[in-house]
Design a protein around this nucleic acid. Structure first.
Lengths: 201, 201
DNA sequence: GTATTTACATACATTCATGATTGTATAAAC
DNA sequence: GTTTATACAATCATGAATGTATGTAAATAC
């Protein structure tokens, strides 16, 4: 056994996380054994157990590497003089993140389709704090848009924020589902623009 | 062994399906053993294997009992002289189905949160034919609403249908997630009305 | 009334997956 | 330069879940 330096150990840790993401995506979290992950990472289970207490801890480690930069990274500029356009750009940016960052896309696909929300994961069914923050930022942005007269007065900024929030949730899910006809992927930008157009004054 | 009549056998078959739904919901499909289901149904694994080839066949049997009557049951009256109001009523009806029919609600909660879309289930990630049909019916209903001058002209009926489809998907998911603050459940009707108000002329 | 199926229960064999333990060669600490 | 902690590999014991095979008593067919 050739003992590794700290840097090398960090590399194998990342290899394990990457392998876990691949196998989770292919087999589902529940059906993935640590043996499979280890093999995919080119190590033995011993290495996996050295770096992670068990499968769940590995799962959370994978999640923390890629979950933050989707909704959480969305920024709404308070000084924007086109707040409604800013919302549209933010939604488009979310889709482009899915396109540009494979590990984020794969992680979300795992979170939505490849794991069961039971026991420790059960509380994660509901919105994460980051999602609530996104909802709050949407509300604030719509309020600024209303102040600038950009919105129809048929619904409150809060109601519009909820509508957009639910729309985005549905869109991301369908986008990730990889429907054979690709209709949600090819149409995503148009759906977003229509969604925004519906509330423009 | 007291052999059962055909009617009694059908009863135990239903007991098994009901037990499966309960345990799937509690433990997730992957972590549910047929032994647990059998115990919950008051039978042995022998009975389960008699009625179903394996866990997946039982899963599909459970699904077929309750999945049809949600989106698939939605009806849009072609002769309605308030098509937009008809869409709103249809969306409200979906939520009320979730409230009124526990087994439908539980089945959808299992399908969304308690199973992994892998192997045989992988194709089910995408929209089912019933969902596409719902989308098509939405498009037709919006087209009728447009013909009656009920809609703003900022988006096509098709675009509005997609927007509503994605909104409903997001809403059902959040509704089922059982967020601790219940905000999506208590606000569902208001969200639906706002959603419709946004496209009314 | 006999034969045959049915509707299960029981028992068995096999296959993973897990967690713990132990071994070990080297990097790092002193 | 010795000691110790590190970064794994290898082995082991255990348990859980599955599918199958067999048993069986009563319902049903004839």
């Amino acid at each position: 056994m050739v003992r590794k330096t700290k840097e090398e150990a960090e590399v194998t840790r990342r290899h394990i996380i990457e392998a876990a993401r691949r196998i989770f995506l292919e087999c589902g979290v529940g059906r993935t054994s640590l043996e499979k992950i280890a093999a995919a990472a080119g190590v033995t289970r011993g290495a996996v157990y050295w770096h992670f207490k068990n499968k769940m801890e590995l799962f959370f480690a994978m999640r923390e590497e890629a979950t933050l930069p989707l909704l959480d990274r969305v920024v709404f500029d308070e000084g924007d003089d086109d707040p409604l356009g800013g919302i549209e750009r933010a939604l488009l940016a979310i889709i482009h993140t899915l396109i540009d960052e494979p590990q984020t896309r794969e992680t979300f696909e795992i979170l939505i389709f490849k794991c069961e929300y039971v026991d420790e994961l059960s509380p994660m069914m509901a919105c994460t704090p980051g999602q609530f923050d996104f909802l709050q930022q949407l509300t604030d942005a719509y309020a600024r848009a209303a102040n600038k007269g950009q919105l129809r007065a048929v619904a409150t900024p809060e109601a519009m924020a909820y509508d957009t929030f639910l729309f985005v949730g549905g869109l991301v899910r369908q986008w990730l589902s990889g429907a054979p006809d690709q209709r949600f992927r090819s149409g995503a930008s148009a759906f977003i623009r229509s969604h925004i157009a519906l509330r423009r004054a």
